[in-house]
Amino acid sequence: MGWVKDTVKSIQLRHTLTQIIQLGLIVTSALVIWKGLICITGSESPIVVVISGSMEPGFRRGDILFLHMSKDPIRAGDIVVYNLDGRDIPIVHRVIQVHERQDIDETYILTKGDNNPMDDRVMYNHGQKWLQQHHIMGRAVGFLPYVGYATIIMTDNPVLKYIIIGALGLLVLTMND
């Protein structure tokens, strides 16, 4: 009867391996899509979630923006995502002034949030008057409301995030088919 035991064991082993591979497939396909989007859009973070109300009523907390980093020059009115030197969190605001140099390939940009009373100079680093090309991470081209709210809830409650990730992982590993 030893061979029956061995067969059952190998089936169980194969089952576990299949489940691990499936979990890997889910993780890697998510990664492939993210990296693919980066390649297509040319922006290092092609999808961002709005976390402040400075662009209300156009964009609210929890809305999702699709970014694109095209070769087209930045112009007044564009909604850009920029990252100041030494800061972690990128900002989504509208361009209200552009000065494009003749002699060198440089553009000086001033931004403002639609819902803010003042332009962004007060938020820039000390002594910084303009944004330049290298601060710009992308330009908003599309918009989906509410979808990003889950991310905000999870960022606000990190415990919830680990519970959800743990539960999902457990479900994937224990599902029997």
């Binding site: 009523p57 156009g58 007044a76 009115g77």
Partner: peptide, 30 residues
């Protein structure tokens, strides 16, 4: 359409800058 953002910009060229765009007025049309 959720809203239209409208603004008026002054645009001109100088010997140093090939383009200057300065927003003078803007408004949100709900």
């Amino acid at each position: 359409t959720k809203q239209v953002f409208v603004f008026l910009a002054a645009e001109y060229e100088t010997y140093k800058n090939s383009l200057n765009q300065i927003s003078l007025w803007d408004g949100i049309i709900p």
